[in-house]
Nucleic acid binder design. Structure first.
Lengths: 232, 232
DNA sequence: GGATGACTATGACATTTATCATATCTTTGA
DNA sequence: TCAAAGATATGATAAATGTCATAGTCATCC
């Protein structure tokens, strides 16, 4: 079994950008990278900056968010093990469009920009994987745009809870395995914190979910999907 | 000068997916494609379908839209000359996430799926260009998500008008060079048609825009940007 | 373990936006 | 050119959601 710090570890995941890469290609990346870690709450990348490299997350959870005009966060997406941060900015030669903050202690591999370009050139399979991932994400973003434009707040909250449940899975007690404040959930739904608090209470009373402290568990998944008009 | 139906014609555009491709690569695509046309209002691709090929738009304007739960359209984006439709679905191996309808008579080149994969394999420059375009679009999608989540309807309308002005340019009288109903604009802003009608009237009275029939012109661009909190 | 700060919960009220109805104007097609 | 259909405009009202205020609970740190 390879050491967990070797890129082959991540390449085993079928959705990984490294999937299907040659041994030589993975070896190349392993030589070029350095290992870094971030404490919970630490900002990894700032919106508007021009990153000098790419992070590949090895362990931990990260939120990608923008700041609106009032300084309010909008969480766009989460990044977990096997995901890359910063490559889009580098490839499109634009400032980075969302900040990244560690939600828990996080370990990542850092690949400098020039090395990243070299890997891209040497490994068409890698860039094709990135293209596939980007295409998938564009589809997801389109869905989110439609939800934000057309669904009411309750439906959107339900949808976000389902997404969180799918993204992070459940802990031993069945709760969504991520530690988020009501404010952070509101920053995904695009609504006021109080509205989220009220609607979580309502969804609980209606039997869709259960909660304990900050933690939330989806109780009736198919009912919640129907209520949120989420189709597969 | 090459005939306008040759792929080199589109490759001249610096933002084109074909930019920087070899003459041989462009020749390869030209051999594989067929020319097609669509009448105004014709549906080019249906949301949820699995396209058997990719369209490269040669002339015309297309809207990409999803249908929400009440059957209401949400316009995600426009596609104009030089843009590709359908490649994301093919590459991510997912059903297509948005329908495409021609806003005016449109001419395109059609590349069958298998040919498209061949071109991708043979031309890493092409797939890298697609990756760059996708990365750029993901940044744009993130901005739209933040606007929908945090801006009010008036700000969003202003922002949409600016985007339309930039995307389609102006005709000889200075009006945005695209023919959209108020309903279609509402379907981009994510609001009721009546709200758009009211706010267009308001923006006109406040001097930001002028309008004549369906047509709208941006009068004071920087003021509109400030009002919409749009920064570069 | 306790204090403090952060977070959650709830009520009251304000604001924004949607819906419904109706009249007028514009565009389209024969 | 004209009639019909579609789109735009406006008013009134309803509904959804935001804001403000306050109290209670939870998590963190010393």
């Amino acid at each position: 079994m390879e050491t967990p710090n070797h890129c082959q570890f991540c390449a085993q995941h079928p959705d990984s950008a490294f999937h299907g890469m040659s041994r030589e290609g993975l070896e190349e990346i392993s030589q070029l990278k350095t290992c870094v870690s971030f404490r919970k709450g630490q900002v990894i990348m700032h919106e508007g900056a021009r990153p000098q490299g790419v992070y590949c997350v090895h362990k931990g959870k990260i939120k990608l968010y923008t700041l609106g005009t009032e300084g309010k966060e909008q969480i766009i997406r989460f990044v977990t093990r096997g995901d890359l941060i910063g490559y889009r900015s580098i490839l499109s030669d634009e400032p980075i469009s969302a900040s990244a903050t560690a939600l828990e202690d996080t370990f990542a591999c850092y690949i400098p920009k020039s090395s990243f370009f070299k890997v891209i050139e040497d490994n068409p399979k890698f860039s094709l994987n990135l293209l596939k991932l980007s295409c998938h994400e564009l589809g997801e973003a389109g869905k989110m745009i439609t939800s934000l434009a057309q669904k009411n707040v309750k439906e959107r909250l339900a949808e976000i809870l389902l997404i969180l449940n799918t993204t992070f899975g459940e802990d031993e007690e069945g709760y969504i395995d991520i530690n988020l404040t009501r404010e952070e959930i509101a920053n995904m739904v695009g609504t006021a914190t109080e509205s989220v608090i009220r609607l979580i209470s309502e969804l609980r009373k209606e039997g869709y979910i259960r909660s304990k402290g900050k933690r939330i568990a989806v109780e009736d998944r198919s009912a919640l999907r129907a209520m949120a008009s989420v189709f597969e």
